[in-house]
Design a protein around this nucleic acid. Structure first.
Length: 566
DNA sequence: ATCGTTCGCCAC
DNA sequence: AAACGTGGCGAACGAT
C-alpha cells in the first residue's frame, strides 16, 4: 500500500491511497492537520509514503513527533533516473519531472538553502515544493501520482531493474534517517568540549582574538623569524619568512614543513593543529551548533556524486579525532560505534567477479590474506597495491606492487582499469546498483602542468596536454566512482536495514559517516544493538551481492565516549 | 566593502 | 613518503 501526500498551506494537506502499481484507490482526502493524518495512517497501515521530497515534508512531521517507516522520494529518485539516462544534473524536483512528462518548459530547481544552525531560522510548516507544478496549471497530487507511475516505468527499464529498485528504496530510507538524525542530534557534552578547548588552546581571549596558547605560539614563531609582524596563519607571510632565511618552499603544508630543518617548524606545526581546532571546532562553533546537549548538523543524503552523504554547516563529517571526546552518551546510555573494516577493497572483490580476490575477501583481514596469497606475506605492499588500483595511482612506490596485483588478480584489476578507460574516453560508468556518474561536460576541472585551473573544452583542445590531463583525471574519477559509489550503497543499505531492526526500541541512530554508524541506546540494550548492527551488515551484503564469499565485517564497540571507539 | 577564489586542514 | 578518489569549511587573498 502506498499513500501519496501533498502538503498545503497552514499545516494541512491531501492524502491519496494507491495500490502497489501506483493506481489510485478511492478518492483523495483533505486534512486540516496533515501531521495528525499521517500519524493516524502510519499507525494503522504502515504504508510507503509517496512524496515530492523528504527534505521538504519530513522535518515538519518530525517537529510534530510523527515518524514513518518507509517512503518513496520523488526528487532523489528522479536524480538517480536522470543520471542513469545520461542526463545527470538536470532539474530533479517534482515540478521539473512533471514538466518533462507533459512537455512543458522545465523549471530550474530552487537553489539549495544556505546552512542555518538550529534555532537560528524560523521553522516553516511544510516547504512548498509543489509550487512549480501548481504554477504549470497542474494539481500537485495528480503530478505526484503520474510522475511516480512514470518513475516506475523508467526503473523497470534500468540496466538492472531489481538492483535499481533497491537503490531507490535505500536512498529514500536514508533520506528519512538523515532528517531524523538531524532532529535527534548527536549527544555532545559542552562541558567536556570546554575542558578540551582550555586544555589544548588555553584561556580564550577576552577581546576576541586567538586564545592564550595560540597567541604564545605566534609570538615564539615571530621571535624565531625575528619579525614581530609575522602572522603564522598567512601562508604567503610564512613563505616569505622562510625565503628570508634561505629556505624556498613550494607551500606551507604540514608535510612540506616536516621535511624542513628549522626551529620554527615544530612551532608552526603545533600552531596549525591548534589553529584549526580553534577556528573550526572552537568556542564559536560550539555556540552556533551545540544546543541542549546535542549537535544537530544538516545532513544531505546523496549530496556527493558518489552517493555519499554531505552536510550543510557544522562540518559534521570532519569532526577531528581529538574533539570526539566531547561526544558522550547520556547517563545510563551507551554509544554503539560500528565501523566497516576495509570496505572499499571488499567492494572491489565483490563486484569485479575476481574469484581469487573474492576468496581473500572472505578473511577478516583482506590485506593480510592478499599478502599471503600473492605478496610474499608483505601486508603493507598488498594494501598499497589495492589502494593504488582503486585511486588510480600513477607514481611512487606503489607501481611495482600494482604490477604484482595485475598478475595475480587480473579480473579485479581489469574492472577498475575498464572503468578508468571508459571515463577517459568520455563514457559513463555505474555503481553496482546503478548510480551513474556525471558526463564529462559536467564539472570536469583539474589542474594542468602549470597548476592552472581550467575547464575542459572539447571543441578547442581535444588533444592538447590540458585535455589529456583532464581525461586522465576523469579516468581516476570513474575508476574510483564504481567502488566508492557501491560502498555508499552498501552503507546506505546497512543503515536502512538497521533502522528497521531498531524500530520499537528506544535506540536512536545518531551519526553516520561513510562507513561508520553510531547508535545511542540504554546501556542494557547495547549488546543487543551491537548484534543488530552486525546482522544489518550481513543482510545488506546479501541484498546487494547475494551469496558472495566476500565478508563485510562491521565491528561494533560499546563505549561511553566516541573517542574510545578506536 | 563585497564577492569569488585559493590555501590548507579535517574526515572517510 | 606524499600526489591518488570524494567532500566541508574558514581565513587569507585578490579582483571588482
Amino acid at each position: 500500500m502506498l499513500v501519496a501526500v501533498v502538503a498545503e498551506e497552514s499545516g494541512g494537506g491531501r492524502l491519496q491511497s494507491l495500490d502497489d502499481d501506483g493506481g489510485p484507490v478511492g478518492s483523495a482526502e483533505r486534512h486540516a492537520d496533515l501531521a495528525a493524518a499521517v500519524a493516524d495512517r502510519e499507525r494503522r497501515e504502515h504504508p510507503r509514503w509517496l512524496w515530492a521530497a523528504t527534505t521538504s515534508i519530513y522535518p515538519a512531521l518530525l517537529r510534530a513527533a510523527v515518524r514513518v517507516d518507509r517512503c518513496h522520494d520523488i526528487e532523489l529518485t528522479e536524480a538517480l533516473l536522470l543520471g542513469h539516462a545520461g542526463r545527470w544534473g538536470e532539474p530533479r524536483a517534482l515540478g521539473a519531472a512533471w514538466a518533462r512528462l507533459t512537455g512543458a518548459p522545465v523549471p530550474a530547481d530552487p537553489p539549495p538553502r544556505t546552512a542555518v544552525p538550529p534555532g537560528h531560522g524560523q521553522a516553516a510548516l511544510f516547504d512548498e515544493v509543489a509550487a512549480p507544478a501548481r504554477a504549470a496549471g497542474a494539481d500537485p497530487l495528480r503530478a505526484l501520482i503520474e510522475v511516480y507511475a512514470d518513475q516506475r516505468r523508467r526503473m523497470a527499464g534500468a540496466e538492472h531493474p531489481g538492483r535499481f529498485r533497491l537503490l531507490v528504496a535505500a536512498e529514500s530510507a536514508t533520506a528519512l534517517i538523515a532528517a531524523e538524525m538531524g532532529a535527534d542530534g548527536l549527544p555532545w557534552r559542552a562541558d567536556v568540549h570546554e575542558a578540551l578547548l582550555l586544555e589544548l588552546l588555553g584561556q580564550p581571549s577576552p577581546v576576541g582574538g586567538p586564545p592564550r596558547r595560540l597567541a604564545q605560539l605566534a609570538v615564539r614563531i615571530a621571535e624565531v623569524f625575528d619579525d614581530r609582524q609575522l602572522h603564522p596563519d598567512s601562508p604567503a607571510e610564512v613563505l616569505r619568512a622562510f625565503a628570508r632565511v634561505g629556505i624556498e618552499l613550494p607551500n606551507t603544508r604540514a608535510w612540506v614543513l616536516r621535511g624542513v630543518d628549522h626551529p620554527a617548524v615544530p612551532l608552526l606545526l603545533e600552531y596549525k593543529e591548534l589553529y584549526r581546532i580553534w577556528t573550526a571546532h572552537g568556542w564559536a562553533w560550539r555556540d552556533a551548533w551545540i544546543h541542549d546537549g546535542r549537535f544537530r548538523p544538516e545532513y544531505v543524503p546523496a549530496g556527493v556524486v558518489s552517493g555519499r552523504w554531505a552536510t550543510r554547516g557544522g562540518g559534521a563529517l570532519q569532526i577531528p579525532k581529538v574533539v570526539r571526546r566531547a561526544v558522550r552518551a547520556d547517563p545510563g546510555w551507551r554509544l554503539v560505534v560500528a565501523d566497516a573494516g576495509q570496505l572499499e577493497p571488499r567492494v572491489l572483490a565483490a563486484v569485479s567477479g575476481d574469484a581469487r580476490l573474492a576468496s581473500a575477501g572472505g578473511a577478516g583481514d583482506l590485506y593480510a590474506a592478499l599478502a599471503n596469497d600473492a605478496f610474499g606475506g608483505d601486508r603493507a605492499r598488498a594494501k598499497v597495491a589495492l589502494l593504488g588500483a582503486m585511486y588510480g595511482q600513477t607514481g611512487g612506490e606503489a607501481i611495482p606492487a600494482l604490477a604484482a596485483l595485475r598478475r595475480s588478480y587480473p579480473t579485479a584489476f581489469d574492472y577498475v582499469e575498464t572503468a578508468a578507460r571508459t571515463g577517459e574516453a568520455g563514457g559513463l560508468v555505474r555503481s553496482w546498483l546503478g548510480r551513474t556518474c556525471p558526463p564529462p561536460s559536467v564539472s570536469v576541472r583539474d589542474t594542468d602542468t602549470d597548476g592552472q585551473v581550467f575547464e575542459v573544452d572539447a571543441e578547442t583542445d581535444l588533444h592538447g596536454p590540458r585535455a589529456r590531463a583532464a581525461a586522465r583525471a576523469r579516468g581516476r574519477f570513474t575508476r574510483n566512482f564504481v567502488i566508492q559509489a557501491t560502498a555508499a550503497e552498501w552503507a546506505a543499505t546497512v543503515l536502512a536495514t538497521l533502522r528497521a531492526s531498531l524500530a520499537g526500541t528506544s535506540a536512536e541512530l545518531v551519526f553516520f559517516q561513510h562507513d561508520e554508524v553510531l547508535v545511542h541506546c540504554p546501556a542494557e540494550q547495547a549488546d543487543t544493538v551491537a548484534g543488530l548492527v552486525r546482522q544489518a551488515a550481513a543482510q545488506a551484503t546479501r541484498l546487494l551481492f547475494g551469496d558472495t564469499p566476500v565478508r563485510f565485517p562491521l565491528d561494533a564497540a560499546v563505549v561511553e565516549s566516541y573517542a574510545d571507539a578506536k
